[in-house]
Each structure stands twice: as structure tokens, then as C-alpha cells.
Design a binder for these strands. Structure first.
Lengths: 146, 146
DNA sequence: AGTGTTGGTACCCATCGGGAAGTAGGCACT
DNA sequence: AGTGCCTACTTCCCGATGGGTACCAACACT
């Protein structure tokens, strides 16, 4: 009862953490949103989210793989596939294979995915309002501390 | 103009991506939220967010380092410090050193952080409504696909 | 037939998340 | 006074994971 301080605490933390996870669904949601590209894909499929290039597409919710790859730009094929698969797995997007010419695949938001996208707009609104404040604070912090 | 396909595309993607980043502040927000523990810390400091243990604290917005470490449980000292520093850097929390007895440090949400927490509640609401759907879909997907 | 397009997969590496353990400094107990 | 424990970290290390590039398969066009 004297030398197991750290280990015991860690073990107890583990069990607490599990229970914690079970009762807190937002934990799962946060992990899903923690994926770097999920938000971008959601925005792309949700339409009207990207000021610069969104004008080209308006509100279309169905996009092909290569379209997504082009619009999101920074994403690599692997990460895009990975992200789309996880979203499909969670029932947020649908994947439609059209095995005709050079096998086109189109992705579309489900109602569930669309509802998440709508919710994320709240976050986007917050970001657009406050991101300049954050960046200012960050710069000031860097200058006085680093 | 034949062998530089991938490289050129990558270079162009890079410039597009930068411009993209500049015009899309939500990108930054998403990166901030991409941090695994940011949401948890925000919830802890925001109060009334964890059903199981929140009852003990009610709505208190000021917490000490060790308090956060205990409540969030799964987090390690390193990650907690790291997360708190990044949040402080972005002006979302304040860090107050009370150099009295065994030097306590308390953290508190700023108005900015509080506004983000409020916004995240929308997300939490979505999670609590739909997380069961997501988990069901996920299980079904796993069973039919391997 | 060779090249391009479409939608991926395989491999490989750098980065980073994350844990265990160590650190500083003051006080309390012995 | 020395030991040890409390607080709030920091440092080291490793395994996982992110992420990029190269490659694959099929088919149309030239």
C-alpha cells in the first residue's frame, strides 16, 4: 500500500475512464470529429461551405471521388479513402459505385451526415467570428513567451 | 509536361491549399478541435457536462490542475499540460498560479473559451441524439464486411 | 499499343500521441 | 535536520498513427 501509488492510480483511472466513456456519448462524437479531414469532407459534401470555390457547385450534395480529391486539395488519396470509409462505416455518407465506363464512384451525405453537417455550421459560425481573436492571442503569446 | 503529373498536381494543390486555408477559418477551428483532449478539458471547465461525476461540482468554472487530471481520468500529466498550454495560447483558458502553500495552479475558461464551450454543446446535443445510430451502423458494417 | 482517366491499395517513413518516471521546492512529521 | 510527500509539471522513450508516393486494374481514345 505504499509502492503502488502510480500503478494503482493508473489502474483506477482506467476503470473510471471506461465508465466515463460509457456514459459520455459526446466523447465518441469528439473522436469522430477529431479526424482532420472529416470536417472538410462534410463541408464539401454539404455544399456551400467553401467561399472561394463553392460558387462553382452551389448546393450539390453528391460528389465523385476525384472531385473531392480536387476540391479538398491538401488531402491525399489514402486519407480521403480512409476518411470516406470511416464516414460510410458510421452511416454518415453513402458510397455508390457506377461500374460503367472508368468506374465512377459517388459519395453523398445521408440524412444523419447532413444533420451533423448542419450542426457543424454552428461551429463554423463560431470559427468565422472568433478565429481572428484566437490568431491574435496566439501571436501575442508567441512573442512574449518564445 | 508528361512526367511531372503527380509532382505538378501536388505543387498546384499546395498553392490552392494555402489560399484555401486563408479564406476558410473553419479549417483552423477544426484543427483546434482535432486535439483529442481539448473537448474534454472544455467540458470539464465548462461544468455540468459529465453526467456521472459532474454532480459533485455543479457549475464551477475554475479548476486546479490535479482536479482536471482526476476528473478527465484517461489523460496523462503531459497531455493535460500540453492541452492547457495550447488553450491558454489561444486565449481560451487562463492560468493562475497561486504561490502560497504547495503552489496551486487554477485554470478557468475565458469568455472566448466559454463561448466555444457553449457552441460545442450543440455538438454534444447532436452526439447524444445520434451516437446510438452511429454505433449501430458501425457494428452492422463491421459484421458484414469483416 | 501506349497513354490517360477513375478509384483505389501497398508500402514506407516521419511525426506525434501518450505513458512512466524523474524534477523542483516547500512543509510536515519524525 | 533529514526524509518524504504534496503540487505541478518536464523529459525520455516507444508504439501507433498520419500521411505521401508509387503502384494497380480496367477501359476508351489516339
Amino acid at each position: 500500500m505504499a509502492t503502488t501509488t502510480a500503478a494503482q492510480r493508473r489502474a483506477q483511472a482506467k476503470s473510471e475512464f471506461d465508465a466515463f466513456l460509457a456514459v459520455c456519448p459526446s466523447r465518441q462524437l469528439l473522436e469522430r470529429l477529431s479526424d482532420k479531414w472529416v470536417g472538410l469532407v462534410l463541408c464539401a459534401l454539404g455544399g456551400g461551405s467553401f467561399p472561394s470555390r463553392a460558387g462553382e457547385r452551389g448546393e450539390s450534395r453528391s460528389m465523385r471521388y476525384s472531385e473531392l480529391l480536387r476540391q479538398i486539395a491538401g488531402v491525399s488519396p489514402k486519407m480521403l479513402t480512409q476518411t470516406l470509409r470511416s464516414l460510410e462505416r458510421d452511416g454518415l455518407v453513402t458510397r455508390s459505385v457506377v461500374a460503367t465506363v472508368p468506374v465512377t464512384v459517388s459519395y453523398e451525405l445521408t440524412d444523419l451526415g447532413l444533420s451533423l453537417h448542419v450542426t457543424m455550421r454552428t461551429l463554423k459560425a463560431w470559427a468565422e467570428t472568433h478565429v481572428t481573436d484566437v490568431l491574435e492571442r496566439r501571436t501575442a503569446y508567441d512573442e512574449q513567451s518564445g
